[in-house]
Write a protein that binds this DNA or RNA. Structure first.
Lengths: 208, 208
DNA sequence: GTTTTCATGTAACCCGTTACATGATTCA
DNA sequence: TGAATCATGTAACGGGTTACATGAAAAC
């Protein structure tokens, strides 16, 4: 048994932290609220939910508005609502506090960032800085490799590498800004939504 | 059997097109010459080579400089050099000519681009334009989803989405430039290298 | 009343990695 | 001579998708 995904598990626990949901809705949130992320299929999601229940981190309950919920019939299928247990919440907090190397790999980092609103500030800093140095290592290797092979490559290959490096450099600059903001204490911390708009916090924020 | 990977197969055929190689070297080239791409492990590469041989697209031969090559002993292992067969080359040309939707998915597109030097111009155009419209669709969905859920999201999630969209927009602009260049006839076609102009960034580069 | 959409699930497969096993060659 | 690197391979597992099967509720 056990489909232990890491990212998916993290995302599911995090989303359920806000409010109980059933699988179908959960899946949609994974593509929207949780952003730009890859869409997990039901074939991944449902088995994952089962194992999380088995771990004791979630409970299954029939949807309250569901008429089948109270029917004593066996075998009928009703909408299943998943709710985070106290143990599940605790486990999620543990995950949030982790700052190991995994946390700055491409995939993990995305989810980690998405839940920064629930993350302690020093943890945020460590994750951001870890991510940055990971990217800087990557840049270093790309530069080295490029220097070694520059002449043997045709223009398209070269252009591809150039664009790739530029993307990474761009993300590093992004991280620098974020780290700067955190350092200045303007980081939007735990559970304080900072009012996505008028308020203070960030004069450079346009987007609307 | 059959590990048919698509990208890996493509890359292997393309690299062997230049010159015969053995697996170990091939693998290194996948991380350098072929760029920024993911490093396939031997556990992927070697079985893949076997299936390509079985398809008749490659031949295995003992390395010429290898003393074991001529030894009539059984069981001794020598360095194996893989060479593209005429059928293999033909197959690769077929793959190069394909412009189906697969060609503009993230992974495929990278390899396709890396071999643009061997690709016909009209094919290059179709691939670039296909990629662009794929990205534009993605942007559209992101914008729509963002418009729907903006208020419910905290600042970090919002920032993540913003950065994600900006990355995609940036790639679209990159594609626009490339398409423009191709249209102007300045595309570096089959084996005609042009200046590596714009970059220059670092004249202190030596290392060779 | 039939088509969509919502909702849950499973089995088969795919593409890849990790960990391991083996042995040859190079180099300090 | 022993360690590092080159070189080839395989079995077990991991994390995911596709295609399929089922059925209820909503929309037309």
């Amino acid at each position: 048994m056990s489909r232990r995904s890491g990212v998916l598990e993290f995302a599911v626990l995090g989303l359920l932290r806000e409010s109980p949901m059933h699988g179908y809705e959960l899946r949609k949130r994974l593509n929207t609220s949780l952003g730009v992320f890859r869409a997990f299929s039901y074939g991944t999601l449902y088995p994952c939910l089962k194992t999380l229940v088995a771990q004791g981190w979630l409970t299954e309950e029939a949807a309250p508005e569901d008429p089948l919920a109270t029917a004593p019939l066996g075998g009928r299928r009703a909408k299943i609502v998943y709710r985070l247990t106290p143990e599940g919440k605790e486990h999620f907090e543990d995950l949030l506090a982790q700052t190991g190397p995994d946390a700055w790999e491409d995939e993990q980092f995305g989810v980690r960032f998405a839940f920064f609103g629930h993350t302690e500030r020093d943890v945020r800093m460590r994750v951001l800085e870890g991510r940055r140095s990971r990217l800087e290592e990557r840049l270093e290797r790309m530069r080295a490799s490029l220097a070694r092979t520059r002449e043997r490559l045709d223009d398209y290959t070269l252009e591809l590498q150039r664009h790739g490096m530029e993307s990474v450099e761009r993300e590093v600059r992004w991280l620098n800004e974020l780290i700067e903001t955190e350092r200045a204490g303007r980081g939007r911390a735990k559970g304080r939504p900072a009012e996505t708009g008028r308020d203070d916090t960030d004069p450079s924020d346009t987007t609307k």
